[in-house]
Lab assay of single mutants.
Amino acid sequence: KAKLLVLLYAFVATDADTICIGYHANNSTDTVDTILEKNVAVTHSVNLLEDSHNGKLCKLKGIAPLQLGKCNITGWLLGNPECDSLLPARSWSYIVETPNSENGACYPGDLIDYEELREQLSSVSSLERFEIFPKESSWPNHTFNGVTVSCSHRGKSSFYRNLLWLTKKGDSYPKLTNSYVNNKGKEVLVLWGVHHPSSSDEQQSLYSNGNAYVSVASSNYNRRFTPEIAARPKVRDQHGRMNYYWTLLEPGDTIIFEATGNLIAPWYAFALSRGFESGIITSNASMHECNTKCQTPQGAINSNLPFQNIHPVTIGECPKYVRSTKLRMVTGLRNIPSIQYRGLFGAIAGFIEGGWTGMIDGWYGYHHQNEQGSGYAADQKSTQNAINGITNKVNSVIEKMNTQFTAVGKEFNNLEKRMENLNKKVDDGFLDIWTYNAELLVLLENERTLDFHDLNVKNLYEKVKSQLKNNAKEIGNGCFEFYHKCDNECMESVRNGTYDYPKYSEESKLNR
Results as ranks from 00 to 15, higher is better:
Lys1Met: 11
Lys3His: 11
Leu4Lys: 14
Leu4Gln: 05
Leu5Thr: 07
Val6Leu: 15
Leu7Trp: 11
Leu8Ala: 01
Leu8Thr: 01
Tyr9Asn: 06
Ala10Val: 15
Ala10Cys: 12
Phe11Arg: 11
Val12Thr: 02
Thr14Arg: 00
Thr14Trp: 09
Asp15Asn: 01
Asp17Tyr: 10
Asp17His: 06
Asp17Glu: 13
Thr18Trp: 00
Thr18Lys: 13
Thr18Gln: 15
Ile19His: 01
Ile19Gln: 13
Cys20Asn: 05
Cys20Met: 08
Gly22Lys: 02
Gly22Val: 06
Gly22Glu: 04
Tyr23His: 06
Tyr23Trp: 13
Tyr23Phe: 13
His24Met: 11
His24Arg: 00
Asn26Gly: 07
Asn27Arg: 01
Asn27Tyr: 06
Ser28Arg: 03
Asp30Ser: 01
Asp30Val: 14
Asp30Glu: 13
Thr31Gln: 06
Asp33Thr: 09
Asp33Leu: 07
Thr34Arg: 03
Ile35Arg: 04
Ile35Ala: 11
Ile35Thr: 14
Leu36Gly: 01
Lys38Asn: 09
Asn39Met: 09
Val40Tyr: 05
Ala41Tyr: 07
Ala41Ile: 01
Ala41Gly: 11
Val42Gly: 09
Thr43Lys: 13
Thr43Ala: 06
Thr43His: 06
His44Cys: 05
His44Ile: 01
Ser45Val: 05
Ser45Asp: 06
Val46Gln: 12
Asn47Ser: 14
Asn47Ile: 02
Leu48Val: 05
Leu48Asn: 05
Asp51Gly: 12
Ser52Arg: 11
His53Ile: 11
His53Cys: 05
Asn54Ile: 06
Lys56Ala: 14
Leu57Gly: 02
Leu57Ile: 14
Leu57Phe: 10
Leu57Cys: 09
Lys59Ser: 14
Leu60Lys: 04
Lys61Gln: 13
Ile63Gly: 08
Ala64Gln: 12
Ala64Lys: 14
Ala64Val: 05
Pro65Asp: 08
Pro65Gln: 01
Gln67Tyr: 11
Leu68Ile: 13
Gly69Arg: 15
Gly69Asp: 13
Lys70Trp: 07
Cys71Phe: 09
Ile73Leu: 15
Thr74Phe: 04
Trp76Cys: 10
Trp76Ala: 03
Trp76His: 08
Trp76Met: 07
Trp76Arg: 03
Leu77Phe: 09
Leu77Gly: 06
Leu78His: 02
Gly79Thr: 04
Gly79Pro: 06
Asn80Tyr: 02
Asn80Arg: 03
Pro81Cys: 03
Pro81Gly: 05
Glu82Asn: 14
Asp84Leu: 10
Ala89Trp: 05
Ala89Gly: 11
Arg90Asn: 15
Trp92Met: 06
Ser93Trp: 12
Ser93Met: 04
Tyr94Leu: 06
Ile95Leu: 14
Ile95Trp: 10
Asn100Trp: 05
Ser101Gly: 15
Ser101Asp: 00
Glu102Asn: 14
Gly104Val: 04
Gly104Cys: 08
Ala105Asn: 08
Cys106Asn: 02
Cys106Lys: 08
Tyr107Thr: 08
Pro108Gly: 01
Gly109Pro: 07
Asp110Asn: 05
Leu111His: 08
Ile112Asp: 11
Asp113Ala: 15
Tyr114Thr: 13
Glu115Gln: 15
Glu115Asn: 01
Glu116Gly: 09
Glu116Leu: 01
Glu116Val: 01
Glu116His: 02
Arg118Lys: 13
Glu119Val: 03
Leu121Asn: 01
Ser122Phe: 13
Ser122Trp: 02
Ser123Pro: 01
Ser123Asn: 05
Ser123Trp: 01
Ser123Thr: 07
Val124Cys: 11
Val124Glu: 00
Ser125Phe: 11
Ser126Asn: 07
Leu127Trp: 15
Leu127Met: 13
Leu127Thr: 12
Glu128Leu: 07
Arg129Gly: 05
Glu131Asn: 12
Pro134Phe: 02
Glu136Ala: 15
Glu136Val: 11
Ser137Ala: 08
Ser137Phe: 06
Ser138His: 11
Trp139Asn: 00
Pro140His: 03
Pro140Val: 10
Pro140Met: 12
Asn141Phe: 02
Asn141Cys: 09
Thr143Tyr: 04
Asn145Asp: 13
Asn145His: 12
Gly146Thr: 09
Val147Thr: 15
Thr148Asp: 01
Val149Trp: 14
His153Trp: 08
Gly155Arg: 09
Lys156Met: 14
Ser157Val: 06
Ser157Pro: 14
Ser158Met: 05
Ser158Thr: 11
Phe159Met: 11
Phe159Gln: 02
Phe159Val: 06
Arg161His: 14
Arg161Met: 03
Leu163Gly: 04
Leu163Thr: 01
Leu164Gln: 04
Thr167Ser: 13
Thr167Lys: 04
Thr167Tyr: 14
Lys168Glu: 14
Lys169Cys: 06
Gly170Thr: 12
Asp171Ser: 13
Ser172Gly: 08
Ser172Met: 07
Ser172Ala: 10
Ser172Pro: 03
Tyr173Pro: 00
Tyr173Lys: 03
Pro174Arg: 13
Pro174Gly: 14
Lys175Cys: 03
Leu176Arg: 01
Thr177Cys: 06
Asn178Pro: 06
Ser179Tyr: 08
Tyr180Gln: 02
Tyr180Thr: 02
Tyr180Ile: 02
Asn183Arg: 07
Lys184Asn: 10
Lys184Asp: 00
Lys184Met: 11
Gly185Ile: 00
Lys186Gln: 14
Lys186Arg: 15
Glu187Phe: 14
Val188Pro: 01
Val190Asp: 00
Leu191Ser: 01
Trp192Asn: 00
Trp192Pro: 02
Val194Tyr: 02
His196Cys: 04
His196Phe: 13
Pro197Lys: 05
Ser199Lys: 14
Ser199Ile: 08
Asp201Ile: 14
Asp201Asn: 10
Glu202Ile: 09
Glu202His: 09
Glu202Lys: 10
Gln204Ala: 15
Ser205Pro: 00
Ser205Gly: 13
Leu206Tyr: 03
Tyr207Arg: 02
Tyr207Ile: 03
Ser208Glu: 09
Asn209Val: 14
Asn211Tyr: 03
Ala212Gln: 00
Tyr213Asn: 04
Val214Cys: 07
Val214Asn: 04
Ser215Asp: 10
Val216Trp: 08
Ala217Val: 11
Ser219Thr: 09
Asn220Pro: 00
Tyr221Arg: 09
Asn222Arg: 02
Arg224Phe: 14
Phe225Trp: 12
Phe225Ile: 14
Thr226Ser: 10
Pro227Ser: 14
Pro227Thr: 11
Glu228His: 13
Ala230Gln: 13
Ala230Asn: 08
Arg232Leu: 01
Pro233Cys: 02
Val235Leu: 14
Arg236Met: 14
Arg236Glu: 01
Asp237Phe: 07
Asp237His: 10
Asp237Lys: 10
Gln238Phe: 04
Gln238Asn: 11
His239Arg: 10
Gly240Pro: 05
Gly240Gln: 07
Arg241Thr: 09
Asn243Trp: 02
Tyr245Cys: 07
Trp246Ile: 01
Trp246Asp: 07
Trp246Gln: 01
Thr247Val: 13
Leu248Asn: 02
Leu248Asp: 00
Pro251Asn: 06
Gly252Ile: 00
Asp253Met: 04
Asp253Arg: 00
Thr254Gly: 11
Thr254Leu: 05
Ile255Glu: 00
Glu258Met: 08
Glu258Leu: 00
Ala259Cys: 10
Ala259Ser: 15
Thr260Phe: 14
Thr260Val: 13
Thr260Ala: 10
Gly261Leu: 01
Asn262Ile: 04
Ile264Ala: 12
Ile264Asn: 01
Ile264Trp: 01
Ala265Thr: 11
Pro266Tyr: 01
Ala271Lys: 13
Ala271Gln: 09
Leu272Ala: 11
Leu272Ser: 00
Ser273Ile: 12
Ser273Val: 15
Arg274Gly: 04
Arg274Lys: 14
Gly275Arg: 12
Glu277Pro: 13
Ser278Val: 12
Ser278Gly: 15
Gly279Cys: 05
Gly279Met: 07
Ile281Gln: 05
Ile281Lys: 05
Thr282His: 11
Thr282Gly: 02
Thr282Asn: 12
